[in-house]
């Protein structure tokens, strides 16, 4: 890697000059930039507050059209699961059932998570190609299928911030170590599977 050879040479030159000068050797090598310079990269959304959601909006109907063009091949008709991935619809109320069904509707504690995720990563073959309006429209469509916005809804930053997600209070902070075991050496209970046969 040519660039690293250059670095090594530069570092040697630096050492030589510093050894002559003496003193503290901590260098600052970052180049100052402004938030405006970083704008195109600055795509994250603080999902509890919706901070970072851009201007724009989209309707459920628009979302359905974009879904049919760009998403249905992997996610299936009505986002009910397709060739690659499982359903993105339903599961609300399933968290206390033996088999939890995880969808954006049932799992996400904040509605903006869907916007953040789709904008940074979808469609998988062409990430970061959707416009903000398209991401809002797809958010409208997916949340409409999950019964969280009406079928005639227009979704924007304000709409996403206002949706109270069913799993909003479903999370707890890491409290491990939660399992305390003893170091038994003799006459210990035999290892048993979780499910008794």
């Amino acid at each position: 890697m040519q660039s690293l050879k250059r670095t090594a040479t530069a570092a040697l030159a630096l050492c030589a000059s510093l050894s002559v000068a003496g003193g503290a050797l901590a260098g600052n090598y970052g180049t100052p930039v402004t938030e405006a310079d970083v704008a195109a990269w600055d795509i994250d959304i603080s999902t509890p507050t919706g901070e970072g959601l851009p201007e724009g909006q989209g309707t459920v109907a628009e979302g359905a059209k974009i879904f049919a063009e760009k998403c249905v091949a992997c996610h299936g008709e009505n986002a009910a699961g397709g060739d690659m991935y499982g359903s993105m619809v339903g599961g609300i109320g399933s968290m206390t059932e033996p088999k939890r069904k995880l969808t954006p509707g049932s799992m996400y504690p904040y509605a903006s998570i869907l916007f953040d995720y789709m904008r940074r990563t979808m469609p998988m073959t062409e990430p970061q190609s959707l416009t903000n309006n398209e991401v809002y429209a797809l958010s409208a469509y997916i949340y409409s299928l999950n019964g969280l916005v009406p079928a005639e809804a227009t979704v924007s930053a304000e709409t996403l911030k206002a949706i109270k997600m069913p799993n909003r209070d479903g999370f707890m902070v890491d409290d491990r170590p939660d399992v305390v075991s003893t170091r038994c050496m003799n006459n210990c209970p035999p290892l048993e599977p979780i499910l008794k046969k």
């Binding site: 999902t47 939890r100 998570i113 869907l114 953040d116 999370f171 707890m172 890491d174």
Partner: peptide, 21 residues
């Protein structure tokens, strides 16, 4: 940020329908 990768993924199901984050 509570992104998908720290809510819907990489979290641990706990009793009573909860998730450890």
């Amino acid at each position: 940020w509570h992104l998908r990768s720290e809510t819907a993924r990489y979290t641990d199901p706990m009793p009573d329908g909860k998730w450890r984050q």
